[in-house]
Amino acid sequence: MTKRVRTAVFPVAGLGTRFLPATKAMPKEMLTVVDRPLIQYAVDEAREAGIEHFVFVTGRNKGVIEDHFDRQFELETTLEQRGKTEALTELRKDLPSAGRTSFTRQQEPLGLGHAVWCARDIVGDAPFALLLPDMLFKGEPGVLSQMMEAYEQKGGNVVAVEEVPESEVSAYGVVARGEGPDKGFAITGMVEKPRREDAPSNLIISGRYILQPEIFGLLANQTRGAGGEIQITDAMQTLMTRQPFTGVKYEGQSFDCGAKIGFLTANVVYALDREDIRPGFLRELRKLDLGEEFSA
C-alpha cells in the first residue's frame, strides 16, 4: 500500500546573492510577488495538495520566515479595532495550524542535498514532498496536486518536469523519458547540466519532488558533486537503481523567481490576474512610453 505524503520540506537557507542588496537583510523567500511572499505561494501549493506538516530548512538571517508563519497578536488586534476584517481573515487563513510547522538549521551552505538531509529526523521514515520556493507555478490544480495523482497510482518517487528549447538544456537537470503518458511516465535516467548533444531529452527537473525516505541514507554518504556541494540529483540517480521514478509533465506556467527576469515576469502576470489590480495596472502600463524597446 502506498504511504500517504503528509510532510513537505522547504529549503530556505540560500543566500539569495542574485538579488543583492535587497536580500542583504531580507530572505529571498520573502520577496513578494504582488503582495504575497514567495514562500507563501509554495506553502499554499503544498496545502492544496493535502500536506499537513511543513518543514523549513533555514539558515542565518531567516528568522523572519518563522515570524511570517506565526501569529502577530498586536497586528491582529489593531486590524480588529480598525474594522479591517478582510485583511485579518486573510492573515489567519494563511497560517498553518498550531504544531504543523517545524524549523531546522542548515549550518553550512553545502547544497540542496545537504539541506534535505538536515530535515531527516523531522521527516522520519515516510515519503515527503520537496518544494523549492524559488520556483513559482501558476496552474489549476497546483503542480504538487498533479504529482500526487501520479504518486497515488504508481507510488515510488515523482518528479515534475517541463519542456525547454534544446539550446537551454545545459543549464538544468534533464531526465530520460521512458514509457507512459505525460502525467505519469517512467524516468529511466537523469543527468545534471548536460551538453546539448548529450542530453537524453529536453525535459528538465522543475523544483518539485515526491521522494521516499531512503534518499536520506544516500545523502548521508553522498560525495560532493558540482560546485563542491551535495547534490540531490546525484542521490536520486543512485536511488533510481533501487526504486521507480515517475515524471509528471505538469500543466501550468512556471517562473524562476531566483532570477530577476523570472521574478519581474511573475509580478506582471500575477498582477494582471487580480481583478482588484488589473484595471489600474493596465492603465499605468499604457502610460509608459516603451516605444521600440518594448516591441523589439
Rank of each mutant, 00 (worst) to 15 (best):
V248S: 01
T265I: 05
S170P: 00
Y151S: 00
S102D: 14
L79R: 04
S167P: 01
A259L: 09
D134R: 03
G63S: 06
P127K: 00
G247E: 15
V158E: 03
I230Y: 11
Q231M: 10
K62N: 14
A160F: 10
M30C: 14
G262K: 02
L285Q: 04
G178R: 06
P133I: 07
F19W: 10
G247W: 00
E140V: 07
I65Y: 07
E149P: 03
A119H: 08
Q153P: 00
I210M: 05
Q40E: 15
P37H: 02
R208H: 12
Y209L: 13
T85E: 12
L130R: 12
G291E: 13
G225I: 12
V34T: 13
E29W: 08
Q212L: 12
L88Q: 08
G99F: 09
R196Q: 14
D198C: 06
E163C: 04
V161R: 11
E86C: 00
V9G: 07
E152N: 10
Q253F: 05
T58K: 06
E29T: 12
G280F: 04
R120W: 12
G258D: 12
P27R: 10
E293C: 10
F56Y: 02
V248K: 06
R92I: 04
D134K: 00
G184V: 01
K193A: 13
Q253A: 04
G99E: 13
G228F: 13
Y151C: 03
F103D: 15
Y250C: 08
G262T: 11
F263N: 04
G50C: 07
K193V: 09
E284W: 09
F128T: 07
F294Q: 05
E197H: 03
A13G: 13
D67G: 06
F10P: 00
I187V: 14
Y172S: 03
I39K: 06
A115V: 01
P181H: 08
V123W: 02
A296Q: 12
M135F: 14
F19Q: 09
K24C: 11
R47L: 05
S206W: 11
G83A: 11
V268P: 01
P141G: 14
F19G: 07
F54T: 09
R208P: 03
L112R: 15
R60E: 11
N267T: 10
G173I: 02
E251I: 03
P127V: 00
I277F: 00
R105W: 11
A176C: 07
E192C: 03
D121G: 02
E76L: 11
S206I: 01
T101D: 07
M190T: 08
A98E: 14
D276H: 04
R47F: 09
R120L: 07
I65Q: 09
E66T: 05
F10M: 03
Y41L: 10
P127H: 12
T238I: 07
Y270H: 14
